[in-house]
Design a protein around this nucleic acid. Structure first.
Lengths: 173, 173
DNA sequence: ATTGACACGTTATAATATAACACTCATAAG
DNA sequence: CTTATGAGTGTTATATTATAACGTGTCAAT
């Protein structure tokens, strides 16, 4: 990941490429926390301490994290250290659209666009594990067309690509 | 699923819609077994009894099956009944492109187009669990474009949609 | 006949995920 | 105020999915 932790904040709504480029991550993370709180207030859901902490943990990096890794972090922070503690918070955050589940990794990553209701495509770097969210409007359009020709009614879909992020393409093994 | 087991074979290479429409499944399955054997001979790989049996089991229906369900079937057929037996055969078949892994279900389904090297999109019916393979050329094109704009180099990708198949849309609960 | 690679069966264990129950606490109904 | 009610949390236990590691067998090429 490419956090310079400088003042070069990119401003406003993050570009989708945020995970792949240098940015003021402290700002980017706190920004999303604020949006999460706003969202919770708006929806009447509760962003409780565990839930908030899980989101913070996932926001530390743009990489996906397994539930048990999150759990370990929670335990050191004094929260319960049994699996349901982590899974419940993660599932809540996923339901709220604040966290995405990465199927290919059985792992979770903070959503970088919590205000939009979206189901992005995930670009997962197999070297550094960074996960970026790509807009899927055209992809989804193509998928819907395919489904239509089958008379299949899509309810939700998952699009995940494994490969190399721009940075890791330079340093291929 | 819609097996009439009649003589109405659709002929030649199966239509991608095969999973969703009535067809002579015995024929459709034996057809694919033959292709699998040919493929193994061509590639110098071995379609051993366990592997063959696993493929047969998956070919019984167009639904995805968990590794442990496959294992149970293997056990009753006199093969080993420890997980590695099933996983090894399944992984072999996946590597050969004869079986697909459905990430959303942690399950496996026989490939209906084993001759093509393809990575289809999967249309998974949440009612009857039938899995169809949709051509992804346009979808993949859109995905590649999105990835390009990130300078992300895709190596493999997974596209899975959950929803209702044509038949189950009529009888929605 | 021997070797070497692949496949198989088994034991054991890892990794991921959920069920079920007891307790707390905020809150809103009485 | 006080008492139901429901949501959230912590815990125990267990389910589900998957792999590591080792010994044995099989078969084809030497």
């Amino acid at each position: 990941m490419l956090h310079n932790h400088s003042k070069t904040y990119l401003g406003g709504t993050a570009t989708p490429k945020i995970a792949f480029i240098q940015h003021d991550h402290a700002h980017c993370a706190s920004d999303i926390m604020k949006r999460a709180e706003l969202l919770a207030r708006t929806r009447g859901t509760r962003l409780t301490p565990v839930r908030r902490r899980v989101l913070e943990i996932l926001l530390e990096k743009h990489q996906a994290m397994g539930a048990y890794d999150v759990l370990q972090r929670l335990a050191t922070d004094g929260f319960g250290n049994q699996p349901p503690v982590a899974y419940r918070a993660l599932n809540f955050l996923v339901k709220q659209g604040l966290v995405h589940r990465i199927q290919q990794l059985n792992a979770f990553t903070a959503c970088m666009n919590p205000s939009e209701t979206h189901t992005p495509a995930f670009l997962i770097c197999k070297e550094c594990n960074v996960v970026a969210e790509a807009n899927t409007a055209p992809v989804r359009r193509a998928l819907n067309e395919a489904a239509d020709s089958f008379c299949f009614a899509i309810e939700s879909s998952t699009i995940e690509a494994i490969g190399l992020c721009p940075r890791c393409q330079g340093s291929v093994i």
